[in-house]
Amino acid sequence: MQINSSYLLSLTTFFYLGAAAVYLLYWIFRLHKIGILATIITVSGFLLETAGIALRWKESYALGYGHAPLSNLYESLIFFSWVTILVYLFVEYKTRNRVIGAFATPFACLAMAYASFSPNVQDTIQPLIPALQSNWLIAHVITCFLGYASFAVACGFGIMYLIKGDSKGGGLLGSLPSKKVLDELMHQTIIFGFLWLTVGIITGAVWANQAWGTYWSWDPKETWSLITWFVYATALHARFVRGWAGKKIAYLSIIGFISVIFTYFGVNFLLSGLHSYGSS
């Protein structure tokens, strides 16, 4: 088989699948060596994916289109998983906690698997239509996906927080970080995601204003990104209301991510609008 970007990227899927499995094993057995192995697999997958993205960029030049690989559903899924792994690796580096990997890498793996193996997603490199021929494309996509990926990781924290429940002591649940730490991590990642989502919405508005003369047209994609924004705004303000911390915010981080997924896929497949790349 000829080595092309699609091949490298579908191979990445298996690295992330392996990483998710090994992180899960690490969570169960708590052996340091297994943890190291999980990190090694994740970093290798990340490097492979980076190479795949770079190669795809090069291939688009060879085809005479020459654009960053951020222009259709396939490319956005790849980029989503890439940023999710990037954000996760940062969190792992900062917290030195590998159990989180069992909850974060599956998101990247699912995105890659969907991109590589779903018949709904075309992996051909397509040229840019006039509306997408703008420098704002890169700024808009990168900022939005930094937000989406952070929210995926925050959702992982929310799930961890909820399954941790009120358990104390040892066992599987005991080896999860403490609820206080999870709450703080969840808050920090939501803040990070919220900032990027905001910048993503703003860059989208600037771009729309340049292309169509309207910075906000209540297109379904725009509206859903605003709905997502409201959900996370709720999560951020909830900390200031007594009795709202912890569990409710964990639920909000999961609801928020569902809203992200709908903004990302649901709008493309179920609703019509300007961002109709999913329908092709």
């Binding site: 959900v231 909830a238 209301v241």
Partner: peptide
């Protein structure tokens, strides 16, 4: 109050869905 802010966020989030489902 922050509670009003949160109530408004939630109301706006839910009602905003209408216009994305119903043709406008």
């Amino acid at each position: 109050s922050v509670k009003l802010a949160i109530t408004l966020f939630i109301l706006l989030a839910i009602t905003s869905i209408i216009g994305t489902v119903l043709p406008q």
